[in-house]
Design a protein around this nucleic acid. Sequence first.
DNA 1: ATGGCAATGTTTCATTGA
Length: 258
Amino acid sequence: MRIATWNINGVRARHERLLAWLRDKAPDVLCLQEIKCEDKSFPKADIEALGWETATYGQKAYNGVAILSRSGLSAVERGFADGQAEDPQARLIAATVTGARVVCAYFPNGKEVGSEAYDYKLAWVERLRAKLAPLVTPASELALCGDYNVAPASIDVYDPVAWEGKILCSEPERAAFRGLLALGLTDALRALHPSEVAYTWWDYRELGFPKNKGMRLDHLLITAGLAKRLVRAEVDRNERKGKQASDHAPVVIEVAAG
DNA sequence: ATGGCAATGTTTCATTGA
């Protein structure tokens, strides 16, 4: 099974690129973040015509997440659905695909360390951690896929000195990321490529991509049940090239049949 | 090569992103 995650930065602006990418890569599951549209504007029919079912949790202009699957989708859950007041921002959707729980998440950006948005970010990650805690067991099959807006280590930042302590790289954000790992999750890309520079995002400004000034912000964290069958994990840098590319590249993993 | 912000709505500028 191939599982992919991609912050598409506006699904309407990326309509043709999305369809072309699906046809070319044909993942079993694709988690999308920042679809930036309401559910009614999502290109559901075009995607279904290619063979993928869709589940969306959209919002006008900002945020918005979706899961695409060509192996079925069941038990779709939008938002935290944890009994507390729902997050007004559409950042989380989950579904079950062939027995595996797929969680698609668009973590808050946080704007600036110490800001209100930063506090919201840290609280949001903790709320997600608490939600996932009972679902992550040695035998369970779960993948937390998305744009975490956290660069976990120096190797994941083009200029770690300049970014030290800054948003995306601050110690509390990295500790929150490690808190997710501590549930029993494995960083799929790092499991197979422990010392490879594997950025997933490059700023549109200042020739970020040509100069490879990027960060690794998009991750797939998987339970041991999936990690033991993990055979491939890679960033599709090719999708960052050319006109009208998202500023994020897709990340794809492959898990052998169980 | 892969190229010096981009998408969206509040629209001819403001907001957000990372």
